[in-house]
């Protein structure tokens, strides 16, 4: 109680140790919880991955990284994640732009936001299940494509990378629309008007004013979508029909059926490192683009 009292009466310039002493009563519970149930479990995974036969060893990593199979699975995983991110951006950006800049009725925008949140608030499993029905051999997608003559006979979607990408794009689309849309909503429309007044075409205005200003929102959305796509387990598991393996499935197998925490730990850390490195690279490229404009 007294600690809270001193915080409200804090002088403007508190020294660092004083600030820490005052923050400590507030921080104790959250820090203790996150250390106990987040940091320590992750360290346990890391240390198990670095042990084999009771001694420190890199054997688990050798087993992961020297096996061509793992590289193939990583390639599939990140190819699916990259394709998903690309498709999500190409579909989500126009929708975000339309909802923020074109739709003038608040009621319509509100309804669209509700429809955008509805899938986001529904489990991956339910949404993937919807696509299992739609993409089946006699599902609505095949029936329609055959019916309008685009296809001669039904094609197989389930059990292909294409099917997984369709499902993941569906799951992750709302994230990018919200990220880009919220960035767009904070761009001052008078900047675009100024650009138009100075003789720029709508396209030039978009490309040189609007797009660079919402780039940070786009990058944040892209990074989120990519990491979620690369670490997705449920959607690939349901839409792959057992025919395609992505990296998170290997992790799940090790912990749920094989119980090999050493090898499983090495797989977990590998996925984590690859994802973080690619995210850092994407952030760098994105920031470079932002500075240039």
């Amino acid at each position: 109680m007294t600690a809270v009292l001193t915080t409200t009466a804090m002088p403007p310039a508190a020294t660092a140790p004083t600030a820490l002493r005052r923050a400590l009563p507030l921080l104790a519970a959250p820090v203790a919880f996150f250390v106990a149930f987040f940091a320590v479990p992750m360290v346990v995974v890391l240390s198990s991955s670095l042990a084999a036969g009771g001694a420190p060893s890199l054997a688990n990593y050798a087993r992961v990284l020297l096996d061509q199979y793992h590289w193939d699975v990583l390639a599939v995983t990140f190819r699916i994640a990259a394709l998903t991110t690309l498709a999500v951006t190409l579909l989500g950006y126009p929708l975000a732009y339309y909802l923020v800049r074109v739709v003038s009725s608040n009621a319509l925008r509100r309804s669209c936001v509700i429809l955008l949140l509805l899938p986001l608030f529904t489990s991956n499993i339910v949404r993937s299940f919807g696509w299992m029905i739609l993409l089946g051999r006699n599902g609505l997608v095949n029936d329609t494509l055959v019916g309008i003559g685009l296809l001669e006979r039904p094609v197989r979607f389930l059990g292909t990378e294409m099917g997984i990408v369709i499902g993941l794009v569906y799951i992750l689309l709302p994230f990018i629309v919200l990220a880009v849309g919220n960035a767009l909503a904070t761009v001052d429309p008078t900047l675009e008007e100024a650009s138009a007044d100075l003789g720029a075409s709508p396209f030039t205005t978009f490309w040189t004013v609007t797009f660079p200003l919402c780039l940070p929102g786009l990058i944040a959305g892209v990074i989120m979508v990519f990491t979620l796509a690369a670490s997705a387990y449920v959607t690939p598991a349901l839409l792959s029909g057992g025919k395609i393996t992505v990296f998170p499935m290997l992790i799940f197998q090790q912990y749920s059926t094989v119980f090999d925490v050493h090898y499983g730990g090495a797989l977990s850390i590998t996925l984590l490192v690859f994802t973080l490195v690619l995210v850092a690279l994407a952030g760098r490229i994105g920031n470079g683009g932002g500075d240039r404009s």
Binding site: F37, F38, V40, P41, M42, V44, V45, S48, I223, M224, T227, A230, S231, Y233, P248, I251, F252, Q254, Y255, V261, G264, S268, L271, L272, T275, V279
Partner: peptide
């Protein structure tokens, strides 16, 4: 904030073991 970007499969596995 890091649980937002950490693969849930990895955290789930870690918590099972822990």
């Amino acid at each position: 904030m890091s649980p937002l970007v950490l693969p849930h499969v990895v955290l789930g596995a870690a918590l099972l073991q822990y």
